[in-house]
Design a protein around this nucleic acid. Structure first.
Lengths: 185, 185
DNA sequence: GACATCATGTAATCCGTTACATGATTTT
DNA sequence: AAAATCATGTAACGGATTACATGATGTC
């Protein structure tokens, strides 16, 4: 139910076209939400019907503006607690039913996953380094917004660190367990 | 694409009815995957067509058995790396576009989220305590499977700890930032 | 007899992705 | 002239949820 709120957030400060909004979604936002143009355009139309945005039609363009109703809906939504989102974690499915693999096979599965997390971690840490130096040269108001947005990057970094650490723990635990019957240790 | 693999995993050791499978999905598995009966029944039919399971029709029952093809498909899937699943994190949307709130409002949003994570954390830690004592009295083979499954519970615990810690960090960072213009500090 | 549990399904709807279709403007 | 980018949409499909529909069996 939340693509609407992403669009409202993106339109909060300046009006944009559907195409512009897609570019916002392809930026930093892509790490926690994504959408295709084929979803964005119909959603904007619905939001117009609901009075959340208005459409300024130009020659080759449609520029969407947030309305007062849209602004207060965004603020209302942010302030309303909504519980913890139930995530589908295919990797946990693999582990939960992983007892039908040998210890060696399972260790390889976990090790590969750890590699993926460490890779993303390195990218995110490089991005944070760059971003921090940018934040230093902004005026206070812009810096505030930027640093608030950076909190999501910090979350990403800690998230991948958490998974990499879990992989280490799991490897340690697995090595203490007996192997599947019929496997030479 | 993965409800099939959850069902294969649940059928690996013993045959089950659709209803039984729903009960498995409502147990510990519910923390990382879920499905309704209205999705399970059609999926089982498809899996039968694909040769992954066979159906033993009884008077009032349909008992599904995994086939050799089903077993090897599950093993193949577990062993095949699949990248990190892109999660949609509505809470990160709130933070990213949260600069339009005052510091006080944002702090409250974060604090409420932290409370939710700590609550779940407490439940999971209690469950782990119970589970650990159960694991101690199982025979080696059953204990191995049980302890492997427990790795997912440990992941849950570390996950909620990570988020609670992020909330603390975010609060610290926010308190160092200036407020929205027009707010008395 | 009432209620809970077991048991199986279909239909409507929603959110989201992929593929398709079109065309103008800008850059090389 | 070709290629990239800007720009807007529709159609088909897939995965999942909610609502609907039905009925047998077991327990209080």
């Amino acid at each position: 139910m939340s693509i609407k709120h992403v669009l409202l957030g993106s339109l909060f400060k300046e009006p944009k076209t559907g195409f512009d909004l897609k570019k916002v979604l392809d930026g930093s936002v892509s790490h926690f939400w994504s959408a295709e143009l084929s979803q964005i355009y119909p959603t904007l139309k619905k939001m117009q019907d609901e009075g959340l945005v208005t459409c300024e039609a130009q020659a080759r363009n449609k520029i969407y503006h947030i309305t007062d109703a849209g602004r207060s809906e965004l603020l209302r939504w942010i302030k309303t607690p909504m519980g913890i989102s139930q995530q589908r974690e295919a990797f946990m499915v693999k582990i939960y039913f992983g007892a039908c693999l040998t210890n060696g096979e399972l260790l390889r599965v976990i090790d590969e996953q750890k590699g993926l997390h460490n890779q993303t971690l390195a990218e995110f840490e490089a991005a944070l380094k760059t971003a921090d130096s940018i934040a230093g040269v902004l005026e206070p108001e812009a810096a505030r917004e930027f640093r608030i947005q950076l909190l999501t990057l910090r979350a990403g970094i800690q998230y991948h660190k958490f998974w990499a650490a879990w992989c280490d723990d799991a490897v340690g635990e697995l090595k203490r367990l007996p192997d599947l019957p019929g496997q030479a240790t």
